[in-house]
C-alpha cells in the first residue's frame, strides 16, 4: 500500500497553488490528507501531481466578523474545536467535530479538505448545509462565492473548477439564544455516520421563529428538510411538532448500498431528526 509515484509541489500562496492547478492536468490537492492519503496509499487515486497546501499562507485560521465566522479552508478540525469564537457562536461545530474521526486525524484534517472530499456521511458538509454556509473559491480570474446549496455537484464531487481552490468558508451566525442539536448514528465512535442530523432552532415567546434541519448520509449530498422547517416555524417546540418533523424525515429519498438499506436510512433519519430537534429545543433560550 504505497502511493504510485507523483511530483510533489508545495506552493506558498493561494495564487501559486492556483497557478499549479492550472498548469498541471492530473493534479490532486493535498490538504490535511486524512482522506486523500489513504486513497493514495491504496492507489484508488494515482495523480501525476500532488499540490500540498500545508505551506500556503493566509488560508487557515478563524475570524469573527461579528455576524459570521470566516474560516480558512486549511483550518484544522482540532483548531476549529479549540477556537473561542467557534465555541461561543457556533457551538454545534465543535460538538459535531467530536464525531469526526479521532483526535489524531482531527489534528491534521481540515474543514476545507472535508468539504471538498464531500463524503455523503461527513459531518462538516451536513453542518454547512444547515448553516447555508458560503464557500469562497480562488481561480485564475480571482475569487467567487458559492452557497453551500450549490456546492455538491454529484457523489463526492464539489462544483469546483479544475483550477479552482477552496480558500474560505463563511458561516453566518444564528441568534445568540439559538438552540442546536447534532445527533448521528455510527456503528462505532468516529466512524462515518449512517445518518447524521444537524438541527438549529430559534425560539421566541414559546414559538419557533427559525429552524434548519439537515440530514447527512441519506443521499449523495446533505439534505435540508425544508418542509419540516417551514412547518416548525410558528409552532410550539414540543414533542408533537418534532414527531411531525420525524415523519417528514421518514419520507426522504435515501440511498441503499451493500450494508444499509434505504428503508433503514429513512427510519434512522426519523429517529435522529426528532432527537436533534429535542436537543436543540432544550438548548434554545426562550423555549420555556
Amino acid at each position: 500500500m504505497k502511493p504510485a509515484p507523483f511530483t510533489y509541489h508545495d506552493p506558498a500562496t493561494p495564487e501559486e497553488a492556483v497557478a499549479l492547478l492550472a498548469e498541471h492536468e492530473d493534479a490532486k490537492v493535498l490538504a490535511g490528507g486524512q482522506s486523500l492519503m489513504p486513497m493514495l496509499n491504496m492507489r484508488f487515486v494515482v495523480p501525476d501531481h500532488v499540490i500540498d497546501l500545508n505551506g500556503v499562507a493566509g488560508i487557515s485560521g478563524v475570524t469573527d466578523t461579528g455576524s459570521a465566522l470566516e474560516i480558512g479552508a486549511m483550518t484544522r478540525q482540532r483548531d476549529l474545536m479549540r477556537d473561542a469564537a467557534v465555541v461561543a457562536k457556533t457551538p454545534i461545530i465543535p460538538e459535531a467535530l467530536e464525531n469526526v474521526g479521532h483526535f489524531q486525524t482531527r489534528n491534521r484534517g481540515t474543514i476545507g479538505g472535508s468539504l471538498c472530499h464531500l463524503d455523503p456521511s461527513a459531518e462538516l458538509p451536513c453542518l454547512m448545509a444547515a448553516y447555508d454556509g458560503v464557500l469562497t473559491a480562488h481561480g485564475p480570474d480571482g475569487a467567487r462565492d458559492i452557497p453551500f446549496a450549490e456546492w455538491p455537484l454529484a457523489y463526492m464531487i464539489p462544483t469546483l473548477g479544475p483550477d479552482e481552490l477552496l480558500t474560505k468558508i463563511t458561516v453566518p451566525y444564528w441568534g445568540a439564544d439559538h438552540g442546536y442539536g447534532f445527533v448521528e448514528f455510527a456503528r462505532r465512535h468516529g466512524d462515518f455516520a449512517m445518518i447524521a442530523v444537524a438541527a438549529l432552532l430559534e425560539v421566541e415567546g414559546g414559538t419557533i421563529s427559525r429552524a434548519a434541519i439537515s440530514i447527512g448520509g441519506a443521499d449523495v449530498r446533505p439534505l435540508r428538510l425544508t418542509e419540516a422547517e417551514t412547518a416548525l416555524v410558528g409552532a410550539a417546540p414540543n414533542a408533537e411538532a418534532f414527531k411531525a418533523s420525524a415523519e417528514i424525515a421518514r419520507g426522504i429519498d435515501a440511498m441503499s448500498d451493500a450494508y444499509v438499506s434505504s428503508a433503514y436510512r429513512q427510519r434512522l433519519a426519523a429517529t435522529l431528526v426528532e432527537r436533534a430537534l429535542v436537543q436543540a429545543a432544550e438548548r434554545a433560550s426562550g423555549s420555556a
Binding site: P38, M42, R187, R188, H189, D191, A258, Y259
Partner: peptide, 28 residues
Amino acid sequence: LFERMIYDDQGQPLTMNYGEYLLPLASE
C-alpha cells in the same frame, strides 16, 4: 456485534478496510 467479512454474489470482497470491516474499539 461487529465483525463481518462480506462478499458479493460474484465473490468480490466488499469489506476491505477498517472503516468497512468493524473491529471492536475501546469506545464501544
